[in-house]
Simulated scan of single mutants.
Amino acid sequence: MTHVASPHATALQASVSQGSVSQGVMPLLDSDVLRSFVAIAECGSFTRAARQVFRTPSALSMQIKRLEETLGQALFVREARQVRLTPEGEVLLGYGRRLLKLNEEAVTQFLAPSVSGRLGFGTTDDVGTRILPGVLAQFARSHPAVQVDVVVGSSREMLARLDAGELDLVLVTAGNPGQGVRGEVVHSEPLVWVGREGGVAAQRSPLPVALAHQGCAWRGMALEALNRAGLSFRIAYSCEHCAGQEAAMIADLAVSPFPQSLVRPPLRRIDPDLLPPLGEYQLTLVKRPGASQACETLVGHVMGAFQAHSTASGR
């Protein structure tokens, strides 16, 4: 059977051949650059892809520029809110996915996993959606035979389960009432007042607020700030998880203290002049004594994820 290549694939291959044969050396595609290219294609955004591969958007932009120069083709059409693949980019996406899969298979074949077992990782719900997908993907590549059990709950619960030997590593909020200083601070950011875009909750009196459960640092910081400012307020909603606070804000039933990095439409940060400042909140990473090599690797991935987050946000 005769295989007929598509016109776009033929054009891409011809461009690479003409540009490289003249120099007598065929260029090689870097797997790290291909991984960034595939991430951008799948996310439709340099910013979202940067978070996924733990690089800055500018670093990804430079990688793609060099890749386009190597292949002699434009791979993306850059629009106001998104990027999309050119026909040549669509061809490369198929090659890129296959090359990355082959690379992973080859490495796995020769570097058989020497570490196996289970690892318990606990985190609070505000952190899970922010870094876990990328962290777990990285860890799975380095320790494919280790089963990771992820538990989501309050900081107090996570620390109790760590002390009971049920978890190996926890990522928790620092400064909760009755919680001593433990672990290493891996992230710090402002806690800000948040409400619905165009909403009126922030203008009501007494001010309706949605707070986390008792014993949460966010709740303590909010109550202290409101009492210090002498503002009239009422606790309209008290929620076990930050998703409950978010629901109350989206419904324009209350305002809430929220990490700045989690504010996204239809929510917005309330004018700082209207409500008292809340200060910074911190996340700490606490590991069980005698942590395994696999646990130490996971620690490195978590810290790297937050460093990349801080770089991308300019903090």
Rank of each mutant, 00 (worst) to 15 (best):
V53T: 08
V4R: 06
H241C: 09
D30R: 09
A222P: 07
Q203W: 02
G44W: 02
G89W: 01
E184W: 05
L136F: 11
I235L: 10
H309C: 09
K287H: 13
V302S: 02
L119A: 00
A49Q: 04
S188Y: 04
L60V: 05
F76M: 07
Q52V: 10
G24H: 04
Q109L: 14
A202T: 04
P7V: 03
L28N: 05
Q23T: 10
G300S: 03
E240K: 08
L167F: 10
I235W: 05
R130Q: 13
S31L: 06
R51A: 11
L253Q: 15
S232Y: 06
S22C: 09
A49K: 00
Q245S: 10
A59C: 01
H8E: 15
V53S: 05
T86V: 10
A59R: 02
S256F: 05
G175V: 09
S232C: 07
P87V: 03
P7H: 06
L171V: 12
S313E: 14
F37C: 02
S22A: 12
H143Y: 04
V33K: 04
G128T: 12
G89R: 01
R81I: 02
R161I: 03
L159C: 10
E246M: 14
Q23D: 09
S154H: 09
L223R: 12
Q282N: 15
S22Q: 13
V107R: 08
I64E: 02
P7I: 01
D126S: 13
G195N: 00
V186I: 15
Q138V: 01
Q245C: 11
L28F: 05
A202G: 04
Y95V: 12
G195T: 01
S116E: 10
V146A: 00
F76Y: 14
A308H: 01
G180A: 14
Q147Y: 01
K287N: 07
T108Q: 14
E69W: 08
V186A: 08
R130I: 11
R35Y: 06
D273W: 08
L171Q: 01
V146L: 05
N227G: 15
E69H: 08
P277Y: 02
A145E: 12
